[in-house]
Design a protein around this nucleic acid. Structure first.
Length: 376
RNA sequence: GGGAGAGUCGCAUAGUGGCAAUUGCAACAGACUGUAAAUCUGUCCUCUCAGGAGUUCGGUGGUUCGAGUCCACCCUCUCCCA
């Protein structure tokens, strides 16, 4: 994997770059649709590439390990062949599940023991084991095993957890050095900054992560419930410390406005379940603002989903029709909403890139944020 | 014509002397940020200063401190026998 910066935005830390992987190139800043179990929910790989213009998608180590399991993934020749995506992928390590499945796991120095949410069976995830699993999954970018701390999180716990994440990181790095790719291409390990909302911990964590000299770096443990301003301040702090010549990935963020603000701060990569999950629940992010398509006011609104939307679904379907599909609980509603939202997110980061290159990102961002935060 | 049964807040249901009344659906809102999510939460007779207040269970009377619930008659519907 390589990263090249093409343009820097004036009066901003935003940058436009290109990540080259064995499965293709990624123009940054980029949004990565989440495909937890190897599938971006309700969306075909054809739609992802041709309509949404996704360049890289996520998979999740914990979920893929439980189902379909490593044997199947190995037999398939890796996740990109298995899910017919054949483009860059990133696997999250299961660190988020340490947080989200908090009541089904036990953390020790050695690792985390999970009780499967599927059948209750016990599974031990050590940093070494996670690296081995991520080797077998075969994503181009693989995440270090961390603990995503909750919010609120007291200082002592945050400090202790961060130190554990750092020790786990050394074990991850070690394991990756000792092992080789299962398939015929290289994988890049990204470490993850933690430290909750504490500036000194975040600073310390960034320095630690930077010292590992990995090919890219991630910021984790944010947008877990802290005020949005806190999230921006910490992201800013991290961006100032993390190496400029490597991609910066802000994990789990966010709303269209969050993404624009954080691009401004120097983030290159984002992922979030919001466009897909909220889409399935009837929330559409459009160029005009946010709409809840299930609301009665859309019953007879025959305007297109998004007047300037670039997706096939935007010009093909009306708000009234999608409203009807949601009310009728038709499966097509979930597909249309997911495709629209993802296409909008990818359009948004694509536009951001154009404006960074053109040198007017800052002004464009301000205008765009007013639009995307409007509640229609 | 004879017999049996049933009418409850949009629909369907629970309720057999203390009830503004159970549950489901529908409706109307809201939430969702490295996915245990096609999920979850709230409202859902009227008004409300959110504490309450006022009208309700086919209709009209009655019994009772108190009736959706018991009694009488009436109306409507369903089924069975002629």
């Amino acid at each position: 994997m390589t990263f090249t910066i093409n343009s820097l935005s004036p009066k901003s830390n935003a940058r436009a770059g290109i990540i080259k992987t064995a499965h293709g190139d990624i123009l940054t800043p980029i949004f990565m649709p989440v495909g937890t179990v190897g599938s971006v929910k309700a969306v075909h790989s054809w739609e992802l590439t041709e309509d949404i213009k996704a360049q890289i998608i996520l998979g999740n180590t914990y979920h893929l390990y439980l189902r379909p399991g490593l044997d199947v993934l190995r037999q398939a020749g890796g996740i990109q062949k298995f899910n017919a995506w054949n483009k860059p992928m990133l696997s999250d390590s299961g660190g988020f599940q340490v947080y989200s499945l908090g009541d089904r796991r036990k953390i020790t120095e050695e690792g985390v023991i999970f009780r499967s949410h599927i059948d209750g069976s016990l599974h031990t995830f050590t940093p070494e084991r996670v690296m081995d699993i991520e080797r077998t999954i075969g994503a181009d970018i693989i995440m270090a095993f961390d603990e995503c701390t909750p919010f609120p999180c007291d200082y002592q716990y945050a400090k202790k957890s961060m130190a554990l994440t750092h020790r786990w990181l050394e074990r991850c790095c070690q394991r990756i050095k000792q092992t080789e790719s299962v398939y015929d291409y290289e994988q890049s390990l990204f470490p993850i900054v933690q430290g909750s909302i504490y500036n000194d911990l975040r600073r310390e964590s960034c320095e630690k992560i930077a010292s590992c000299n990995c090919e890219g770096n991630a910021i984790g443990g944010l947008s877990v419930g802290e005020p949005v301003e806190t999230m921006y301040e910490l992201t800013d702090l991290c961006c100032l410390i993390l190496p400029k010549d490597k991609p910066r990935y802000l994990m789990g963020v966010g709303t269209p406005a969050n993404i624009l603000e954080c691009i401004d701060l120097g983030i290159d990569m984002f992922d979030c379940v919001m466009p897909t999950r909220n889409g399935r629940n009837g929330m559409l992010f459009t160029s005009e603002g946010i709409i809840n398509i299930k609301n009665a006011k859309y019953t007879s609104d025959f305007s297109p989903l998004d007047a300037i939307g670039t997706s096939y679904v935007d010009s093909t379907y009306t708000k009234a029709y999608l409203h009807h599909l949601f009310k009728a609980e038709e499966i097509l509603a979930l597909q249309i909403a997911s495709i629209h939202n993802l296409a909008f997110y990818l359009w948004l980061v694509g536009e951001a890139r154009k404006h960074i290159v053109a040198g007017d990102f800052k002004n464009w961002k301000t205008l765009m944020i007013t639009k995307v935060t409007t509640r229609l």
